[in-house]
């Protein structure tokens, strides 16, 4: 009973730049990112005020701040509605956050590819941080989880986490539109020489988006530190909205500009 629904891009003026970038003999990641961001700019611009995307980012803020308190579990129960016990592993933590976030996202906006990508990006960032601080997602203790989340709460690391979140969201968004047509340009003698090169292309695109998100890193670090000072570590979902708008705006401008 398993099925996969696929879509294609229309051959309209709006998308012609992306088609051309895919037709080039050696596909260039920055050109694809540029053309995709230009073609999808109207839709991507709506994400700046998307409450579901903002919520996923706010979860990172909340988790980081909760980890600095002595009441990590009860704080997360209160703000995110998740229940953790002392036996909870990193995987349990992420899956609890994932379930609660899906529910919260559903309350804020209808499911869309971009809200889905925001959820996945948030899971990705949390998992990576936990893995960096513990041997495994499944072997880690709640203490390890709190330690990992606490690492996000420093000014510098929060900047990195925010950068990773928005870079992942943007890479997924660009791949989302590009992959509607990419298969037609994969094969010997085509723009992408084969499936191995297609995987490489995906990885390169992620890396390119990560590099392009540099602009967010410093700003996020400063913003987090200032907001925490002003709110006494109680940054609200509403107050992250302006940051989300700014970050997405800047990132799109970077991608639309292409290689400098």
């Amino acid at each position: 009973m398993g099925h996969i629904r696929l879509g294609r891009l229309p051959k309209t003026k709006n998308w012609i730049g992306l088609f051309r970038a895919l037709e080039r003999e050696n596909v260039q990641v920055h050109a694809i990112a540029k053309e995709a961001s230009i073609a999808a700019q109207e839709r991507l611009a709506t994400l700046e005020n998307d409450p579901a995307v903002n919520y996923c980012f706010w979860v990172l803020v909340e988790v980081a701040n909760a980890a600095r308190t002595d009441m990590f579990q009860s704080q997360l129960e209160k703000s995110l509605g998740i229940f953790l016990d002392e036996q909870s592993t990193g995987a349990k933590f992420v899956s609890e956050i994932a379930t609660a976030t899906s529910r919260a996202v559903r309350d804020r906006a209808l499911a869309s590819p971009f809200t889905h990508f925001a959820e996945m990006s948030m899971r990705e960032v949390l998992s990576r941080y936990i893995l960096e601080s513990s041997p495994s997602l499944f072997g880690s203790s709640l203490r390890d989880v709190q330690f990992a989340c606490k690492r996000i709460s420093t000014k510098k690391n929060f900047g990195e986490a925010a950068k990773a979140f928005y870079a992942s969201l943007m890479a997924k968004s660009i791949l989302y539109v590009t992959d509607k047509e990419a298969s037609n340009y994969i094969g010997v003698g085509k723009a992408i020489a084969g499936s191995a090169e297609a995987v490489q292309f995906q990885n390169d695109l992620k890396r390119y988006c990560f590099e392009s998100s540099k602009i967010i890193e410093d700003f996020a670090a400063g913003w987090f530190s200032k907001q925490n000072w002003k709110s006494k570590r109680k940054i609200t979902e509403q107050s992250t909205q302006r940051f989300t708008s700014y970050a997405l705006q800047k990132l799109q401008m970077e991608l639309k500009e292409g290689l400098k």
Binding site: I4, R123, S183, N184, I186, V199
Partner: peptide, 28 residues
Amino acid sequence: RTHVENYVRFAKRLEEVNSTDSLFVEFP
């Protein structure tokens, strides 16, 4: 074509995953 290409590309991506942890990070 997209169905077929995606299917083989997915297998290639899986081939590059080297642990349970990285599978969960790669596919949250």
